[in-house]
Design a protein around this nucleic acid. Structure first.
Lengths: 134, 134
DNA sequence: CAGGATCCAATAAGATACTG
DNA sequence: CAGTATCTTATTGGATCCTG
């Protein structure tokens, strides 16, 4: 697979360039921190179905604590992935929606999901083999 | 952009399917845990340049502790992303290399890196805007 | 050289109670 | 409804010492 190899080589090159940057400014880590975060991507994917209000998200996710929901939403807003709109009703209502930037991350994230779907069986198999012989 | 939207829609569909699985068996989480891990992907990318021995990796990465190097390598081996080969010399030498599965994750990971490279400026800008007004 | 075993500090996250 | 504030616990990672 020449195409796979060239993609991989390109990735390695980008990676090498990104790592050699000053600590804390690494753009890759900036993104990976979002992806790796326990709730960020779950929220992004939930909001991919359309704008939602605070307690709506809370019900949708169910096992997220209110603290983590607040905190994760604020971080996503800070990074420009999510927009927050307050409607001055009483009681107040606040709506969250993905920005264009927020929507765009779904695509590369999709490649990870696709890879996960395809290779999860192999990983699972490797784990069982490893665990059974050690 | 119809293509982007259809990719995103497909991703959302895959995601919805994956989440509704029994807790702990979610293939997406399995992969994200690797990606999100502080050292896993750094090791994978380092090994992308070729097989390497334990202390060689240690020097290459420099700021990884011996504990984390051992632990991360074992996890990667358990997941079938890295192969460990012991040469019975004295003192013993152990070589680590990516498996085919390990190499293949570089591709989807590359899409994340590319996204990061393209959108890091926007994220940075959003952060500054957010921080300056709150 | 390639780790194993401990101990300790930092961070992340859950539970709970309260507010405009 | 949409949060804030605080306390406590769980997880992660680093430092250090030891071994075949």
């Amino acid at each position: 697979m020449l195409d796979l190899d060239s993609q991989a080589a390109n990735t390695v090159a980008q990676w090498n360039a990104s790592i050699s940057q000053p600590t804390g400014a690494c753009p890759v880590r900036t993104v990976l921190d979002k992806v790796s975060d326990k709730w960020s991507m779950l929220l992004v994917m939930t909001l991919a179905n359309g704008p939602m209000r605070f307690n709506q998200l809370r019900r949708e996710i169910a096992d997220i604590s209110q603290k983590m929901l607040t905190q994760t939403l604020r971080d996503l807003q800070r990074d420009g992935l999510v927009a927050r709109q307050v409607f001055d009703t009483k009681p107040p209502s606040v709506e969250y929606r993905l920005t264009d930037l927020g929507e765009s991350i779904i695509v590369p994230f999709g490649h990870m999901i696709a890879w996960a779907g395809q290779n999860h069986p192999r990983i699972d198999q490797a784990r069982q083999a490893f665990d059974s012989q050690s």
